[in-house]
Amino acid sequence: MARLTEQEIQNNIFKKALDREMLRQAKYNYLTNTVKDKRLKKLFKVFDMTATSHIAELKQEMQNLDIK
């Protein structure tokens, strides 16, 4: 059985983290646009913005590590 290199493991972890954060961001964006309660709308908007920030950070780090 072939073993993954540390580089392959790192690439997979970053890609998985990016995928999950993008799903999270899409979910919060959807909730922001569908809920009627203003307090919840504001809360989901903050979560959406936080996920967007995380996506940018992950992409920057992936670029620094040459992960495509």
Rank of each mutant, 00 (worst) to 15 (best):
R24Y: 13
K42R: 10
I13L: 01
N11E: 13
D19E: 15
K16V: 00
E61G: 07
L58E: 03
M1C: 11
F47N: 06
F47K: 07
L40E: 06
A56T: 08
N33G: 06
T5K: 04
F47L: 11
S53A: 12
E8I: 03
R20C: 07
E57T: 15
Q10W: 14
E6C: 08
T50Y: 13
T50D: 15
V46K: 11
N12E: 03
N33S: 09
K42M: 08
N64D: 14
K38A: 13
K27T: 12
N33M: 05
T32Q: 02
L43K: 15
D37K: 04
K68F: 09
R3C: 14
A51H: 02
I67P: 02
Q25A: 06
L58A: 05
I9M: 05
K15V: 03
N11D: 15
K42N: 09
Q60I: 09
E61L: 13
Q10D: 15
D19P: 06
L18G: 00
E8C: 03
N11C: 10
Q7R: 14
A26P: 05
L4D: 07
Q63A: 14
R20K: 12
N33I: 06
R3Y: 14
Q63M: 15
L31K: 04
L58Q: 00
V46E: 09
L4S: 07
K16G: 00
I55Q: 03
F44S: 04
D37A: 01
E6T: 12
Y30S: 07
K27M: 14
N33R: 08
K38F: 08
K15N: 01
V46W: 08
K41M: 03
K16N: 00
Q63K: 10
R39Q: 15
L58I: 02
K38M: 10
A17K: 01
K27L: 15
K27Y: 12
K59L: 05
E61F: 13
R39L: 13
K16R: 14
K59T: 05
L40Y: 09
D48Y: 14
A2G: 13
L18K: 00
V46G: 06
H54F: 01
Y28A: 02
